[in-house]
């Protein structure tokens, strides 16, 4: 059972990484509009999207 002393902290680290990713995605506005990106997938296009996809600061 003593392996848990190692596994639980690793699990917590993973959870922390998840939270950090979530924090970043909220801050960059990915949850502000959850509908349009789903539609954008349908648009198959040769389009070379410009590098700055979200111009909002």
């Amino acid at each position: 059972m003593s392996v848990l002393y190692l596994l639980v902290p690793i699990a917590l680290l993973l959870a922390g990484a998840g939270v950090a990713a979530f924090f970043w995605s909220v801050r960059s506005g990915q949850f502000d509009d959850v509908e349009t990106p789903a539609i954008r997938v349908l648009v198959d296009e040769e389009r070379p999207r410009s590098s700055d996809e979200s111009p909002r600061p």
Partner: peptide
């Protein structure tokens, strides 16, 4: 026009 992103539910266009 460098970039155009539409937010459909809000009917808002972000334009660069």
């Amino acid at each position: 026009v460098l970039a155009a992103t539409l937010d459909l539910p809000r009917a808002r266009l972000s334009l660069h």
